[in-house]
Design a protein around this nucleic acid. Structure first.
Lengths: 123, 123
DNA sequence: TCGTCTGGACTACATCTGTAATCGAAAGGT
DNA sequence: ACCTTTCGATTACAGATGTAGTCCAGACGA
């Protein structure tokens, strides 16, 4: 995964990933979380940048294009995670978890989830 | 932690954090990992940007300045981690761990570390 | 004392990012 | 057949970022 996405571009990708179906520019704009008060123009710009990066592909649909994500969310997120953990924690996950624990960003549910996950991993 | 650091700025901060003692611009430059083939000028620029962001503080030492990190690494890293996990995993850590596990970025040592950590957390 | 070196301040400049406006072509309504 | 709406494409523009170069004043050696 060499493709890097800016935060704004990622927001657009999230919409495409969530839709799991090709969308036109207007459709994408409608599904962007409204906190981001983006105009349609902004969304269009981001779509062209994503096209340039080949993160999405266009398919002609009459007078417009429908866009599909060309990279899978899992792949992207996995790559970014590894990059992040290696930049800040020398590649080790446990310091991250320790860190999050201090910031109270880890509740009992999380801990249980993680334990279950580890159990599965070991087998 | 409102201060955001760019990747290059972070590299400089890492030097300051590692030194755990005020350093002059030249000292910093000497300790930057050599893969980054930065000139002294580049390091100086980054130091001024960090000054502007108040991420570091200058102390006069004769004709030059010695710089000290004004934010602690733990604090910074914790904030960035929370930001990251919430951006990509809705704030939940376990999906991150699952993700890393798939990419083979998690070995037995990690798993053991994490288990030990969880054990401590629960008590 | 005079020239040289060194440090911080200022300037430079291409690229990336966030956020949009505009424009021309095509589609659709009437 | 024309007017309006809607697309994608192109252009805009400020701020952040990566990567340096230049300049001036003060320190230091001879």
């Amino acid at each position: 995964m060499n493709i890097r996405l800016s935060e704004a571009e990622l927001e657009v990708m999230e919409v495409l990933w969530a839709a799991s179906q090709p969308l036109g520019a207007t459709d994408v704009a409608e599904r962007i979380p409204p906190q981001r008060q983006w105009t349609l123009a902004t969304v269009k710009t981001l779509l062209s940048r994503l096209l340039a990066k080949q993160a999405i592909a266009p398919a002609k649909d009459g007078r417009r294009f429908l866009y599909t994500a060309m990279i899978e969310r899992d792949i992207y997120v996995g790559a970014e995670s590894r990059r992040f953990v290696s930049r800040l924690f020398g590649g080790r996950l446990s310091p991250l978890i320790a860190q999050m624990a201090e910031g109270e960003a880890l509740d009992a549910t999380d801990i249980a989830d993680i334990e279950a996950l580890l159990k599965r991993l070991k087998s």
